[in-house]
Computed example of a mutant assay.
Amino acid sequence: MAWVARFLDQLKHALVPRGRVLLDICRLCRGVDLGMTLNQALAELLPPWDYAYYRERLCEERGLLDHDSSCLAPYLSVEHTVPAMLSVVGELFGVRFDRMTPETWDPRLTLREHVDMFAVWDEGVDEHAFLGYLYLDLFWHHGKTKTGMVAYTRPICVGHTATASGTRKYPSVCLVLNLAPTNPVLGFHGVRTFAHELGHCMHVLFQQVTHAITSGRHLGSDYVEIPSHVFEHMFLQRDMLKKIGRHRAYLDADAMRAWSAAHPDATCPPPERIPDELLQTTADSLAFLTLYGNLGSL
C-alpha cells in the first residue's frame, strides 16, 4: 500500500497550497466586510456559517455556476437525462434495463405514481443473465422525507446470494430522490446525486457473493464508495454532459410550444444540446466548488 500513501501525499502537496490561497481570499473578503485590517483578517478563522455565503459570492465574481444554475437545469430533465444515463451504463457494462409495467409484465404489479421498476439483465452471458430489480423513486410524495435532493439506496434483498438449495437470491435496489413533481428537472446537482446513487445500485446488482453480509454496503467505506465516485466523475465530464443533456423544449411538440409561450421575445429556439461555453463554465465551476468544499479540512 506504499503507492497509495505516495499518491495521497502527491495530492496533498498539490492541492493544499491552492486551498490555503482560496481560504485566504475568503478571509480577506470577510475582513473587508467587517472593516478589519489585513493582519486581522488573515488571523481570523472563517466561521462555518460563512462558507456558503462566500462560495456564492466568489462564484458570482468569477462568473461561475453555484451548484444548480437556471441556465443549465433545462438541459438536464428527468424525462431525457435519466434514460440517457441508464443507456450509458448499459453500453459500458453490457446490461439491459427493461421497464416493467402491469401491461408488459404482470397485471398484479402495483407501483406508486412516478415510481419506475426495471428488470436488469446481463446481455454478455447466456445463462443466469438476470441480475436483479432496480426501482427509481425520484419524486417527493407523502411519507417521504421532505429534505431536498436527499438520495439513498435501499437494498431489499442484498447481494446475489446462493441459498442452501443452490438457487439464487436476486437483489432489489431502490434509488430515491426528492424532486418536485411539478418541476421534473435534475439539474447539475441532481445529476451528480443520481450518478452517485446509481453507482451504489449497480454495485449491488453486479455482485455475486455467497453470503449477503459481504455484499452491498456492508463492507469498508472505501470499497463501498469507489463505484459511486467513479460514476460521479464519469457523468460530470464535459462530453458526458453533452451526451445526456438535452433541452426540455425538444422533448415533444407540447414542450416546444410551452417554451415559446414562456419566451415570446425569443427569435429562435434554444440550442438542443448544452452549448460548449456553458460546458466550459460548468467544468470550471465544478473544479472551484470541489476545492472550496474541502476548505473546512484545512
Rank of each mutant, 00 (worst) to 15 (best):
202 M>L: 15
205 L>N: 07
171 P>N: 05
197 E>T: 05
224 V>S: 03
200 H>T: 07
196 H>M: 04
176 V>Y: 09
222 D>K: 08
198 L>N: 00
180 A>M: 01
174 C>A: 07
202 M>T: 07
180 A>D: 13
187 G>R: 04
175 L>C: 14
189 H>K: 14
182 T>P: 02
200 H>L: 10
216 G>R: 05
174 C>H: 04
206 F>Q: 09
206 F>K: 08
193 T>H: 03
209 V>W: 01
179 L>Q: 05
224 V>I: 14
194 F>T: 01
219 L>A: 09
189 H>E: 14
220 G>N: 08
173 V>T: 07
192 R>N: 12
209 V>E: 15
186 L>N: 04
222 D>Q: 09
182 T>N: 00
173 V>Q: 08
198 L>F: 04
213 I>P: 04
209 V>C: 12
179 L>D: 06
176 V>M: 11
179 L>S: 02
223 Y>K: 06
193 T>W: 06
206 F>D: 00
218 H>Q: 12
172 S>L: 10
223 Y>S: 00
187 G>T: 01
190 G>W: 10
197 E>L: 03
178 N>M: 13
218 H>V: 05
179 L>H: 06
204 V>N: 06
200 H>P: 07
194 F>E: 11
199 G>S: 10
175 L>H: 03
218 H>S: 11
186 L>A: 03
220 G>R: 08
188 F>L: 15
178 N>C: 11
